[in-house]
Nucleic acid binder design. Sequence first.
DNA 1: TATGAGATCAACT
DNA 2: GTTGATCTCATAC
Length: 191
Amino acid sequence: MAKAQKLKAGFFARSVHQVARELIGATLLVDGVGGVIVEVEAYHHTDPAAHSFGGMTERNAVMFGPPGYAYVYRSYGIHWCLNFACEQEGSASAILIRALEPTEGLAAMRRRRGLKDERLLCSGPGRLAQALGITREKHNGKRLDRAPFEIFGRESKPEIVAGPRIGISKAVELPWRYGMNGSRYVSKKFV
DNA sequence: TATGAGATCAACT
DNA sequence: GTTGATCTCATAC
């Protein structure tokens, strides 16, 4: 088996669902801090729950750009959430990174989160963004294959589970949330 | 364990 | 003026 490869922008230039599944088990680092992705959600512009549904605006412009870029938005006025733009330029699809299993830079994450419990450091989009120090200022529209981002492909194929997405009011039934089976670090258990 | 409200702001109507 | 791709804490069982 080859060692984990750093992912290039081309990795994201494919179907959001394909990319979402392959991201489970991959390692995401921001300034050397991060861990293994255990939960994501897919959003496509034909999907009523997506921010890009209904056209380009100032906020979601990154989703309409080329794949392999970070889209960061403010959620509920409090949290930042990190997304990866996918497919092709103009497709306006993205993947919301919902949870990590923390492996690198635990001390930095604990400091930012003010928590000891490793399990709660990154188990949710807002928590994850806080632990990695994600802000729109610093990360929106940045390339995922350049510093401060580093994403390494998974080394083995994990067991993937899918289910309905969380916290949305439209297209609630679409099973576009993907996770690593049995991970303790997902934001909410898959049924 | 489960449910509920408050925090807090940018984008959208 | 309203609404979130959320989290935390308080209160109730």
